[in-house]
């Protein structure tokens, strides 16, 4: 879900993902940490107008992995009997 959200945009912050995914902050944070460890998500912390801002974006590796995943699912679904 998180990967899909980030796949269709360039970047977003934590609050945006929170609303879009409907997850709890703790849950989302845990998932993001795992995705960051896997090298799929890049977390950039910066200050905008003196306020902390966390930008989240898919890395090239993450984008490629998600694309591959989608292709595999597509192939899997196509092979299914009606």
């Amino acid at each position: 879900m998180i990967m899909a959200q980030l796949y269709v945009i360039q970047s977003a912050d934590f609050t945006f993902l929170l609303h879009q995914t409907g997850m709890t902050p703790g849950n989302l944070s845990a998932h993001l940490s795992k995705l960051e460890d896997a090298g799929y998500v890049e977390i950039t912390k910066e200050f905008i107008e003196r306020k902390p801002h966390t930008a989240l974006a898919l890395t090239k590796k993450g984008r490629a992995a998600f694309k591959e995943y989608r292709q595999k699912v597509k192939q899997f679904v196509e092979k299914l009997p009606e």
Partner: peptide, 11 residues
């Protein structure tokens, strides 16, 4: 309220 999102150059 809903956070920041950038749709990027593509959008």
């Amino acid at each position: 309220r809903i956070g920041f999102v950038s749709f990027g150059v593509r959008g």
